[in-house]
Design a protein around this nucleic acid. Structure first.
Lengths: 137, 137
DNA sequence: GTAACTGCAAAATATTTGCATCCTT
DNA sequence: AAGGATGCAAATATTTTGCAGTTAC
């Protein structure tokens, strides 16, 4: 509870029940959460709309970031220690396990440099790896 | 028209007006198309449902592949020459221009090798780069 | 006290399913 | 001729918006 409060305060967001609870879900899960993962756990507590708006405010403040999912859905995960809120860079690797379905950020893996054809100017890079995670092998 | 017919035949799909037309859209666009990009162009010709079902059959046959988009939407693009239909590998780079919004496959760029933590077994890798494309500079 | 946040209703958007009819092979 | 493909209607799912009431600071 204390941690959530602090994170919210640092982001200039008021501490409300829904924000603390949803932030808590992210803090206690090492893997990324989809909207429906979250909804399932808080459906009885808050309105759908509140969940959407909570996620949106977390995104705007750089508390969480989106992870593209090539099955169409979008997932969300905590940003690591200090995402610069202005230049929101997430050049890290995401791993999606096709067995358990969990997606997680591999913070320790760096994307090696690569060349783009002339004229292309990259701003942000994200690498999505699919396969089998260490738990599922 | 002849090309579409041939591609469809090779994939064991019947040649119908909607499939030829939609396949034609992919053939004449170098960038990836979202569902709504397609819908806009064929709305007066076919039903929504037909478009969805057409895309689904193209995906199943490996004619097109999905491209995750970290703004939530999904796009579709032609698979390069010969995607093995069984092992559907798309280890190539996608570039999304934040200015014009177009996403394209950079077939010529290869993803450099990188290390994963122990236990993780990769099957498929996709690299999404965002920035400014050569046309928009 | 006030601006920010929430819940509810409802709209807007997106996707899927069933079924009768039509068309490709 | 027969099975696959399409169109229509409608169900289902997803996300957003407006507004009135509530709450954090």
């Amino acid at each position: 509870m204390r941690i959530q409060r602090q994170i919210l305060k640092e982001s200039n967001l008021r501490s409300t029940t829904s924000r603390s609870k949803i932030l808590g879900l992210f803090l206690s899960n090492s893997h990324a959460l989809s909207y429906s993962d979250i909804e399932k756990q808080v459906a009885s507590l808050f309105d759908r709309v509140t969940v959407y708006r909570t996620l949106k405010s977390f995104l705007e403040k750089g508390i969480i970031h989106k992870i593209p999912d090539n099955s169409g859905g979008l997932k969300y995960a905590l940003c690591s220690d200090h995402c610069p809120h202005t230049v929101h860079q997430h050049d890290h690797v995401h791993f999606k396990c096709t067995r358990c379905g969990q997606t997680s950020c591999l913070e320790e893996v760096e994307i090696p440099p690569f060349d783009l054809p002339g004229g292309y100017k990259p701003d942000e890079v994200s690498l999505l790896v699919q396969g089998t995670c260490s738990k599922c092998r």
